[in-house]
Design a binder for these strands. Structure first.
Length: 574
DNA sequence: GCCGTTTTCGGCCCGACTGTTTTCAGTCG
């Protein structure tokens, strides 16, 4: 797959063109191509071979030719020409928050600065930048701090970390005088797998806004105040994340919440939709001329646009607006649809809570069923179970299960899938268990074709019910295997094997786009926490968000079944 | 460079905040 590489080429061309001050609309269209390529689940080679490049939104004749050229020669001529015009270090400056293309161009052309290192030195003695307009002492200090932040932080926070921080900020703002309602917006509300910054909104009368912004900037987690105006505040938090708060009037809350929930691409598409209806949409409301048509609630704004309500998780400009217009949005599942958790560990392998404690915690959550799935023998570092210990555990589970009237406790295993697709236990051992999850844990840098064959072989194994965390990725840590998700999902559908959405915020695997491909291929999903303690059972909500981002409905997800339905599904499988 | 419920040409989302600009450019979301 050359998707990623090619996406980078177009994104970089957009950056370079912007530094060269080329037509902003052409720049925007290159940027869009970068995003489209990045989000593609099919290999760009296959799409090109099928002559379908120009059927992708945002890709026209000229882009198609550049993609073809890249696939044939490994390069895009126009990209090479741009690289020849702008020193590479100048483009690298765009990574620095607060430094955009205009400033990078000025630093280069008028200040003679061509690398980030040179910039750092020059900023330390700002008189060196006297020839560059707009470069005062304050701006210099701000850029130095931004660069220091980049050096320390790995970039984006995980969904779970960001949620906890956001909730602490919400509490601080709610305590401020005049705050009527505080809500989370941004990528956090959309349930994106990683979060760049936290966006919050507070409904309050205009006269209270200043005090609320002050309260926000004094919240315990705040380390530095970046901006504090009349209606907007920006801060850096402990750990380096940025958080923004806007204070809005009651009659604008819906429009503002939509605007700050994004995504940017959804907003652009929605405004375009509004314009075609002779309406104007901004964060204050939906307007016909000067008259406000809607704004207090999101429902009202979507309705006035002739659209069904679009759930935040769908707002990525991936076809949701057309679907909302045609009444074809999916009926998304919600956390309350989940009736069990089918992947959790105990102290028998690397879990922190006992079998009894895990059962009690699942019962307290009101689950109808659960599966114990400890590691198999080759996971030595996790004290994986061999056949003998597994059989002992099965005995204990069966005895405990017999005593549980209100929850169905199933026996299971998380059996390793080896590099060649074979499993860590022979069929006779696996056949004794109620539910078998097979997961890849090692050799995760395998090539795409090999990884796909590996998973398909496991899917075709007669004893396997589910593939756990299929790609093996760890967010912000390792990329995992690059699967041909189409082929994997088709095999899963054909063999009636479920694909896991691992809800652990470090994994979220399958990821959103893979969920969507799996749903379209007719595969069944199962959302599991992979809990290693009773506390992590509540991570389920992040898996549900990821499922929603993949347009999954309850019928696509195995653990929305009742116990009786699940029994039937298991009976058909064997 | 892309695109079409007004269009194959002429549009392309829009507002807040900061810094250093004395009237606004740049960046961000």
């Amino acid at each position: 797959m050359k998707n990623r590489e090619l996406a980078d080429v177009f994104s970089q061309m957009a950056d370079l063109m912007e530094i060269l001050d080329e037509d902003p609309f052409r720049v925007a269209s290159y940027r869009k191509v970068g995003r489209v390529l990045e989000e593609l689940t099919d290999a760009i080679e296959d799409i090109a071979a099928a002559g379908r490049l120009e059927t992708l939104g945002g890709i026209g004749k000229s882009t198609a030719a550049k993609i073809a050229q890249f696939l044939a020669t490994g390069r895009v001529q126009a990209h090479q020409e741009l690289l020849g015009k702008v020193p590479s270090g100048v483009a690298a400056m765009l990574e620095i928050p607060g430094l955009g293309p205009k400033t990078a161009a000025k630093l280069w052309r008028q200040g003679g600065i061509t690398t980030v290192e040179q910039l750092k030195i020059a900023l330390a003695s700002p008189e060196k930048l006297a020839g560059v307009p707009g470069m005062g002492a304050k701006k210099a200090r701000q850029l130095l701090e931004s660069m220091a932040f980049l050096d320390r932080s790995a970039g984006r926070a995980l969904l779970g970390e960001a949620s906890a921080l956001a909730e602490s900020l919400v509490q601080a703002i709610e305590a401020a005088k005049g705050a009527q309602r505080v809500v989370i917006a941004g990528s956090l509300r959309r349930g994106k797998e990683t979060i760049g910054d936290i966006d919050l909104l507070c409904q309050a009368p205009a006269k209270a806004a200043g005090g609320i912004i002050q309260a926000f900037t004094r919240a315990p987690a705040v380390r530095r105040v970046l901006a504090a105006g009349e209606t907007k505040g920006s801060v850096t938090l402990e750990g380096g994340m940025q958080a923004d708060l806007r204070v809005v009037d009651k009659k604008s809350l819906g429009a503002a919440w939509m605007y700050f929930t994004g995504s940017k691409d959804h907003n652009v598409a929605l405004r375009d939709w509004a314009l075609r209806k002779k309406l104007k949409l901004n964060e204050y409301g939906l307007f016909r001329g000067r008259r406000a048509v809607a704004g207090a609630s999101e429902d009202e704004v979507y309705a006035a646009l002739g659209l069904k309500f679009i759930a935040p998780e769908l707002r990525e400009d991936r076809g949701e607006i057309a679907a909302a217009a045609e009444g074809k949005l999916p009926r998304l599942l919600s956390p309350k649809d989940i009736r069990g958790d089918m992947h959790m560990h105990t102290t028998a392998s690397d879990g922190r809570n006992s079998l009894e404690e895990m059962i009690e915690a699942c019962r307290a959550r009101g689950y109808a069923y659960m599966v114990i799935a400890d590691h198999s023998q080759s996971q030595v570092q996790a004290r994986g179970l061999d056949a003998k210990r597994l059989r002992q555990q099965v005995q204990v589970i069966r005895r405990l299960a017999a005593a549980c009237k209100d929850i169905w406790v199933m026996t299971g295993i998380e059996v390793d899938i080896f590099k060649d697709g074979s499993l860590d236990f022979p069929p006779d051992v696996l056949a004794e268990l109620d539910f078998v999850t097979a997961s890849p844990h090692s050799a995760l840098s395998q090539d795409s074709a090999g990884a796909t064959r590996r998973l398909i072989r496991a899917i075709e194994h007669p004893c396997v019910h589910c593939i756990g965390h299929p790609s093996g990725r760890l967010l912000n840590a390792r990329p995992g295997m690059e699967l041909d998700i189409q082929a994997v999902a088709e095999a899963a559908a054909a063999n009636r094997v479920a694909l896991e959405i691992n809800a652990d915020p470090h994994r979220l695997d399958l990821r959103d786009l893979h969920v969507r491909a799996a749903v379209e291929a007719g595969a069944t999903l199962v959302i599991n926490t992979d809990s290693h303690s009773v506390d992590s059972l509540l991570l389920m909500r992040y898996g549900v968000m990821t499922a929603r981002r993949g347009w999954a409905e309850p019928k696509d997800v195995l653990n929305t079944c009742t116990g009786a339905e699940l029994k039937k599904w298991l009976a058909k499988r064997r």
